[in-house]
Design a protein around this nucleic acid. Structure first.
Lengths: 336, 336
DNA sequence: CTGAAAGCGCTTACAG
DNA sequence: CTGAAAGCGCTTACAG
């Protein structure tokens, strides 16, 4: 009596066959309205709950999408994952999520677990390192897999990649600073040698070269702590620097704090630009100019793309870069 | 040929029965080492992937835990969900997650979907309103369910509740401000009438009463925007206020920005305290004093508790409040 | 230590 | 419009 009622219990109580009950589940028009209502009443009475796993076993669809994220505590990734999850939910898919904390071994493990659970597709913002241990099993399982935000496995034919147009973001940020009269623009944060750092820097470097200005890269972790330390150090190490583009908003917000700590104003004497445009940017003082990536829209777009692949077999293009724009605010404008 | 190999394929290729293969999956000691190795080699050759859903159908365990969160974009909840997910993963469970955006209808829907997917238990930080539509189906499905961070359904016997000790947090914050000489302490943010607001306020109110100081509640949304607006308004509306305890860190960080915008220093003339101690608190300037809830440890503890319930039938106590402490920083100390 | 059979709760053709 | 039968990929007693 403590076991959950099954389709057989419903069929018996409703006086029909279990095939009929199954057709009711699927809202088949082949079932007479009275029959359907009778069955539904019985289901409610019995407290019947549909066992989707049993159904999937036969029909081979699970309705579960795996989402794997390198750093879910970072608001940029959290916003992406949340937008993706909500869009998937709206299309009737549940989301299995895992944070990998930039650990390739953990990533391989959670991906293996997702495959066993029968996810129908995977969206992954991968960590760097040991990509085969994650991507090869996904490939063997014949799952649609999209790499997002970071291109770690170069096989974009198998694992199509999409991200905001970081290169363009760096470019418009640098152009804005140059147009504002900045002479010595630093690029702050981002691990040296990583693809995402190079992309975010490339537009900056190209713009400076065109304008004949000297580049300066201060690499480091993409955190507030690094931004703050850099700001505190800047007056001593690089006194001539009069503007900075940061690897991400966390670094920029950290720099903002460091400048405040020194009592050094940001905006006119020193122009600061972040990257990603997370929610905080508009709510700090001075408000932070940032490269807006519309990460909520990006997440919804990824949901669309992976479901089109899964449901209709539409393979995404190997590499897509979505548009970005510069959100101008006080930190680069000298408003006070 | 495009279908995934099954246990039968493995058995045939290895020249054993499928029962034997099943025992290999389960690492049964009953299988001879050579047989096991032979089977494992065949599995690797065939690219076999275990179908956990099929297995669960028979054994009735799914290894999936549902996590439902009212606002996943809020770093406090994101940190909680991430810590919980990682702890569950370590114990061999996958996490199905959903953000409800404070929408009771959406919450009822995602919970229904999770039940159908056969989650073994649910951890929910619920939204306010229409609690029956969410909790009754969970109860009917006979699932272990824990309410965390917010007590929305009063049936804590069925849905045990746990949260950091908000009351104590408000108390130690208020005591610290009083001891520092503050005379007019406001409580800022939090929707009026909500349980969580009342709890976070209650320690503040009790302390002020004991000390004979006048309370002042400025209710509003738990956002940076509200904090900033309140700070900008404060000098005009409530010029005598010389300290504030905020509903959460976002409100406090917003106030910090509002004060910066006015060029009004925080720390000595105005003492400010946040709630939750999210990561940002230590990285802004002045650094924000906050009620530390150890939300990462809290998430790990919840994982522990729900799994003890699920695996060993240990019903959690109806209501648990975990310890908090005050993290003293510049915003309430007058350091410059 | 291994095999043959039944069963988990559904869906899917196929009859009627 | 509805029913009887087979099957999805595993696990679970039960023999041997």
């Amino acid at each position: 009596m403590s076991r959950r009622p099954t389709i057989v219990d419903v069929a018996r109580a409703a006086g029909v066959s279990k095939s009929t009950v199954s057709l009711v589940f699927q809202k088949s028009p082949a079932v007479k309205a009275e029959t359907r209502q009778a069955v539904q009443r019985v289901m409610a009475d019995l407290g019947y709950v549909y066992n989707r796993n049993a159904a999937n076993l036969r029909s081979n669809r699970v309705g579960l999408i795996g989402v794997v994220i390198n750093d879910l505590r970072n608001p940029f990734f959290a916003e992406f994952a949340t937008s993706l999850q909500m869009a998937l939910s709206q299309r009737g898919y549940a989301t299995v999520i895992a944070n990998t904390d930039e650990d390739p071994m953990l990533q391989a493990q959670v991906v293996g677990s997702m495959i066993e659970h029968g996810v129908s597709a995977v969206v992954i913002s991968p960590t760097y390192g040991a990509e085969e241990t994650t991507f090869d099993p996904l490939h063997r399982a014949r799952l649609p897999v999209m790499q997002v935000l970071r291109k770690v496995d170069p096989r974009v034919g198998l694992f199509p990649f999409t991200a905001p147009d970081y290169r363009r973001g760096g470019e418009i940020a640098a152009q804005h600073l140059v147009a504002s009269g900045a002479q010595n623009i630093a690029f702050v944060g981002g691990q040296e040698g990583r693809a995402v750092t190079q992309e975010r820097m490339s537009g900056y470097l190209a713009t400076l070269q065109v304008c004949g200005l000297p580049p300066l890269a201060l690499h480091g972790r993409p955190t507030r702590a690094f931004g703050r330390a850099t700001a505190l150090d800047l007056a001593r190490s690089h006194p001539h620097v009069d503007a900075a583009i940061c690897f991400n908003d966390l670094v920029a917000l950290g720099m903002l704090a460091g400048f405040a700590e020194q009592g050094r104003p940001v905006g006119r004497d020193f122009r600061l630009i972040g990257f990603d445009d997370i929610e905080d940017c508009a709510q700090v003082y001075p408000a932070l100019t940032s490269v807006h990536c519309d990460i909520a829209g990006f997440g919804a777009g990824v949901a669309q793309t992976i479901l089109a692949w899964l449901e209709d077999g539409i393979l995404p293009p190997p590499e897509v870069h979505t548009p970005v724009r510069l959100m101008l605010r006080g930190s680069s404008l000298g408003a006070s």
